[in-house]
């Protein structure tokens, strides 16, 4: 890890206030992504992957509250900055693409206009030139007949094409960090690969750091340089992809790998992880939120979570890791 980090997240904690109690959605979440690299955040649904991204982007639901942490983008702490400062950086320095691209685009505005909106706001493109630049961007993301497509509405396009449009919007201002939240969910398998290739290629072109959020460990293994494994709002393990697969140290990571179809020798060997995510509203949550599902639980597990060093090579939040 010699490269300069593009984004560093440290000790992030997020709560949601609901009718039925406070959900402690994230605790002590830390990771960093260097320029030009791809970091995957992997976990089951409900593990806090998307909440992490939303917190960093400053687009949390109004019920959500960031209770601690820093998110350093260059010299700016996104979590401490004013709303205007963050809005000026979003889309310019740090961009995001979402799952379900068809609903993520404004249904009654042409895709060309939607790209132009971002260009005018962030890329210092004059209003008159924006539509033309939008067409160029559509061509860059591999849309055929971009001039005609720019005048189309999202409902007239396929999901894959909408995701290309999303990518064009996100990369319009050539940001230094891209967060891709399950960008291939809802797309068919061949389109998935194409979209992932496209994101990879474009990221390489502008030397951008990519944070790739997925529940699919196999996909993360193919695309990411480093993988952060999340469970119930905690980062349980953080290692380079090769290291993680060669020597998983957290019991949960090991179970995840065993449960990945690619890793299993046959369907019979495909393991499922016992138990489910704990209810994060509980007041008696154990320090390690995996403890109640863990086959390697020790007495220490109920005392505290091991302190994680800031940005080392291989982090594991476990008192009794696999060796």
């Amino acid at each position: 890890m010699t490269a300069v980090p593009a984004l560093v997240v440290e000790d992030l904690a997020v709560e949601f206030r609901t009718r039925s109690g406070t959900v402690r959605a994230l605790e002590r979440v830390s990771f960093a992504v260097p320029k030009g690299e791809t970091l995957a955040i992997v976990g089951e649904s409900g593990s806090g992957k998307s909440v992490t991204a939303y917190a960093v982007m400053g687009i949390l639901d109004p019920a959500g509250r960031i209770t601690s942490g820093r998110a350093m983008l260059g010299g700016l702490d996104l979590l401490a900055a004013s709303a205007d400062q963050v809005a000026a950086v979003r889309g310019r320095e740090i961009a995001m693409i979402f799952q379900n691209p068809r609903t993520a685009l404004n249904p009654i505005r042409t895709v060309g206009q939607q790209i132009a909106d971002v260009l005018i706001r962030h890329a210092n493109v004059p209003r008159r030139e924006a539509p033309g630049r939008a067409v160029e961007l559509l061509r860059d993301v591999g849309i055929t007949d971009p001039a005609r497509r720019a005048k189309a509405y999202p409902f007239e396009m396929s999901g894959g094409m909408c995701q290309r449009v999303m990518i064009a919007i996100a990369l319009a201002a050539k940001p230094s960090v891209l967060i891709a939240d399950e960008p291939t969910t809802g797309l068919d398998v061949t389109t998935q690969a194409v979209i992932m290739d496209l994101i990879g290629d474009l990221a390489r072109d502008i030397g951008m750091a990519t944070i790739f959020i997925t529940h699919d460990l196999a996909l993360a293994a193919q695309r990411a340089d480093r993988i952060v494994v999340m469970h119930a709002g905690h980062v349980v393990e953080n290692a380079t992809t090769a290291e993680l697969f060669a020597r998983p140290r957290h019991p949960y990571t090991a179970e995840l790998i065993a449960a990945t179809p690619d890793a299993a020798a046959s369907l019979a060997a495909l393991a499922s992880i016992p138990g489910s995510l704990p209810d994060l509203r509980r007041l008696d949550l154990p320090p390690c939120r995996y403890a109640e599902r863990c086959p390697r639980r020790l007495g220490d597990c109920d005392a505290a979570l091991p302190a994680a060093p800031a940005i080392p090579e291989h982090v594991v939040a476990c008192w009794n890791p696999l060796s």
Binding site: M57, I59, D61, V86, A87, A88, V89, R90, G91, R92, A95, M96, F98, N100, T103, A104, L105, N106, P107, I108, R109, D117, V118, R121, H122, M166, I169, A170
Partner: peptide, 30 residues
Amino acid sequence: LSSDFVRTARACGLASYTVVVTYAFRNAML
């Protein structure tokens, strides 16, 4: 305001006027 495309517009850092008027309001009028 809680729809996916307004979240996108905000994630793109569009000015809050653009988000509320151009993106949210026109859709909300339907």
